[in-house]
Design a protein around this nucleic acid. Sequence first.
DNA 1: TATATCGTTGTTTTT
DNA 2: CAACGATATA
Length: 721
Amino acid sequence: MSILNGLNSEQRKAAEKIDGPLLILAGAGSGKTRTVTYRIAHMVLEKGISPYKILAVTFTNKAAKEMRERVENLIGLEAKKVMVSTFHSFGVRLLRVYAAKLGYDANFNIYDADDQKKLVGRLMKELVVTNKQLTPASVVSKISKYKEDGDEPSDVAKEVYNADTRVVAAVYEKYAQELIKNNAMDFADLLLNTNKLLDDPEVLEKIQGRYEYVMVDEYQDTNNIQYQIITKIAKKHKNICVVGDEDQSIYGFRGANIRNILDFEKEYKDAMVVKLEQNYRSTQNILGAANSIIKLNTTSRGKNLWTEKEKGHLIEIFSASDGRAEADYILQEIIKGKNNGRSYKDYTVLYRTNAQSRVFEEAFLRHRISYKIFGGMQFYQRVEVKDILSYMRVINNPKDTVSLFRIINVPKRKIGAKTIEKIRDFADENEIIFFEAMGRIEETGLGSAVKVTVLRLYEMLKNIMEESQFLTASEIYDMILEGTNYMNYLTSYDEKFEARMDNVRELRTSIQEMEDSEQYEGFISVGEFLEQTALVAATDDLEEDTDYVKLMTIHNSKGLEFPIVFLVGMEDELFPSAKADFSDDDLEEERRLCYVAITRAEEKLHISHASERMVYGRISYMRDPSRFLKEIDDRYVDYINKAKVTPKKKESKLGGLNLITKADFKVDEKSPFKIGEKVTHKKFGTGIIKDVEAGKRLVIRFRDGDKKLPLVLAEKFLVKE
DNA sequence: TATATCGTTGTTTTT
DNA sequence: CAACGATATA
C-alpha cells in the first residue's frame, strides 16, 4: 500500500517519476503542492532516497514553509533534512560560505530597492548626470534588467547605443564596484552571484554532489539567471522536476521568462510531461469564466481544467458609480455574510495596484471590520523602522555606507554633507573605510564641535560591534535605542510620532519572536535577523485562521485560495494597466494576471468596477469597464446592476499615459514605418510607433519608455510585426 | 547646518 | 494626494 494512493492518477504518475526530467503542468488548484509533497514523501519513504539529496526551490518563504510542513506531516522529522528554500535564501546561504571567492565578506548586507536608489542617486551626482529623464529609480530599474539578463557592466559598455545607454553603463560600472566596496548585494546579485559561484568547479561539484534531486515550483516565473542556476545544479544527475503553469506567469516585468517552461521539453528531449487538469478548488462557473479568458492568450498551451464540484454561484458583476460606492458594496456584502454565519476570514479583496487598498481600508475602519493589508508599504521599509535597521546593518557590516550615511545624522547631530565629504576625502587618501575614518576624526582637521559628535557616534557603534558576536539581536536593538535616544528623537519628528513609536516597539517584538522561534532557540545574531527582514515577502505572515478580511494585490495572491473573492477596480487603464496598453506581450501578461485572480476563488467571485475614481488626487471620469470583463463568457456571469451606458467620448486622461488615438494615425508616405505600427527591437522588445518626426526620426513607445530612433538605424534594428 | 516652504512628480505589479 | 527635492532663509 503506497503512500501515493492519496493521489489521482495523473498526480500519481508525476509523483512516481523520480529519475530524469519531469515537467508537471499544474493548472490552478490542481493539487500541485500535494503532488510535490507526496512525491518527496514517496522518494524518502518508499524509494529510500536520503532527504539530504533533495532540493526543492520555491518563490516565497510561505510556499517553502508550507511545503516543509506538509512533507513533515507525511514523513515526520526526516522532512527537516530536505532542503526546501526560496531561490534567494538558497543563494544567500551559498554566498555566505563562498563570499570570499567573489571579493565579498561573509557578512554582506542585502540592499533593497530603496538602498539601491540611494546609492545610484549618489553615484549619479558624482558622475554629474544632467539628463533629467534619468532618475535614480529609472537607472536602478535598467541596471536590474541588465542583471536579470546576466549582462555585466562591460557587456553594456560595449553596446554604446546612445547617450543614455552610455550614462547608464557608466553608473552601472561604478555601482557594481561600490556594492563590493560596501560589502553589499542587491536582490539581483543574490541570484547573479550564486550563478557565478556555480561556475567555480569546486562549488559546482559540491552542490551537484549533494543535491541529486532538484525540484522547482512556479517554474513559469523563473528568470534567465534562475534558469541557469537550476540547469547547472541539475546537469549532473538530470533528475529535475519543474512544476508550473504557463497561464500563471505574471512576473515578466521582473525578468521572468515564460519560455523557460514552454521550452522545457525541447531542452530535455526525454522529459516526461504530466498535465494536472482536475481542479479541486473552484466551482464550475468560476472555472468556466477563467477558461473563457485565458484561451485568448497565444502563449497558452491549452488545457482543460475541469472539476467535480457543482456549478455554484454565478459571478456577480457590480457597476459602481465611484470608488467609494464600490467599497460600500463590498462592505455591505461582508456585513450581510457575517450576519448569515460567515466569517471575515472568508473574504478577500484583490486589486491591481497597492494604492487601491486605501478606500477599502477607510471603509473597513469606519465599520470596525477587522482586516489586514498584505504588501504595499512593508513594515521594514518605514522610515523609523529602517532607521533602526540601518544602525543594525552598520553594526553587522561597517563597510555599508548607504546605511551609515542614512543614520549618521539621525537623530540630528549636525553632521551634514560637508562633514561627510571631508571624512570621505580623508578615508580615500588613507585608503581606509569611511567608518574607520570616523574613528580617526582627529586627523581630519574638522571643527572641534563636530569632531566630538562624530567620535561619540563612532565609539558607540564600535562598542556595540565589538560585543555584537555575543549579543542577540534584541540586545543590540536595546543598545541602539538607548545609545541614540531614538524614542526621544521621534517625539519631535512629526505629528504621527506615536504611530512611529509603536512601529519601533513592534520591531522589538518581531526580533523577539524570531529569537524565540524553534529555529533560533533564543539567540539570533544581528546578521541573521537582518537577512530575515531583507527576504520577507508580503504574504509570508498570512495566517489562515485569524479572522480578518484579507486585502492584497493579485500578484501577492498567487498560490493562495479564498472562499469568497472580490476582484475590484476592473476598469480599462487600471486593469489592464494603462502601461500595458501598447504591446501584446504585456496585454497577455495582464490577462494571465486576471486568470490568476479569478482562479483564487473557491465558492464565489464578485467583480466590480467604477465609472468615476480618484486617480492621483483628481477624479477620473467615464471609466470603461475592463476589456477582460467582456471576455468572460456571458453564461457564467450575472450583472447585478448593469452599467449605465456612458457616452463614448474619449478624453485624454489626466496623469498616466495618453493613449494613442485615431488622430495620431496620420501616414507619412516617405517612411517605410507608419504611425501605429507594431515593431520589434532586439533590445527593447515590442513597441508601437508613436510618431515619425519629419520623416527622419521615429518615436517608439516601448515597454520601458519612449525611444527616439533615427530612420537609418530604425531600418537596421527594427522588425515589423 | 537646520528648517520652512514651495513645486514637481509619480503608480503598475515584487523576491 | 503625498512624498520628495530644490531653494530660500535663519
